[in-house]
Amino acid sequence: MLNALQQLGRTALGFFERLGRGHILFYYLLLGIPSVLVRPRLLLQQLFSVGVLSLLIILVSGFFVGMVLGLQGYNTLVDFGAEESLGTVVALTLVRELGPVVTALLFAGRAGSALTAEIGLMKATEQLSGMEMMAVDPIKRVMAPRFLAGFISMPLLAAIFSAVGVIGGYFVGVGLLGVDEGAYWSQMQAKVDLHDDIYNGVIKSLVFGVVVTWIAIFEGNDAVPTSEGVSRATTRTVVHSSLAVLGLDFILTALMFGDN
């Protein structure tokens, strides 16, 4: 009985300890950002591995998600004789929800796991301790550039995802199913609002970018320095950041679109 209670207490304390370490790391990451701006070359390298290398999966899945939306939306709307609103349906779904959320999930799987594995291995092979020995701050040198790169890449990737998705919906709706081309674009332009929809989508993707990269870097830095520890940390990154993205998405949606 007492042992079970002790176990519970230990688990809870461990949870809060990790939470605290995560926030301290977040604080140091923010402090490290100015020193990244002094060395843009580090940032460039990370933008390449975090952003450019995620581009292909984003382009392909964006196009297919847009095509599916076009097809599903058309099949539903045609019952009401409202297939002209297909453009609105596709654009609003992508810009408000699917663009930021699916991009963040793919980003967690593609870039987040790679970040965790990279940093975890650096820790396991004592490269991070080596840097400290040489008086190089690994947070400023290794983690802050990756954090900033994730922060910059996510909104760009989400915008690319939405834009490609709209084109995919156009391809299926107008090209294959025969929705009027002018109606597709004009209904979309009439209903999608720059401030309410597009800015809020960008804000969402910024938040997701911060959260996913933060979780990825924290898990890498916090990994048990063995090969098993790194693999578990990588799994945790994908699971935790996906859950965080989906949960945060609900909260952000309620805040942004709740009052109308």
Binding site: Q45, L47, L55, L156, A159, A163, D193, L194, I198, V202
Partner: peptide, 27 residues
């Protein structure tokens, strides 16, 4: 080539944002 790719990526991202703003929304 890293620089060129990053440049392309950022340009494509900004172009997508621009397209969303101009083509999709009621600017």
């Amino acid at each position: 080539s890293v620089e060129i790719w990053v440049g392309l990526f950022v340009a494509a991202g900004l172009a997508a944002l621009f397209m969303l703003a101009m083509q999709v929304s009621n600017l």
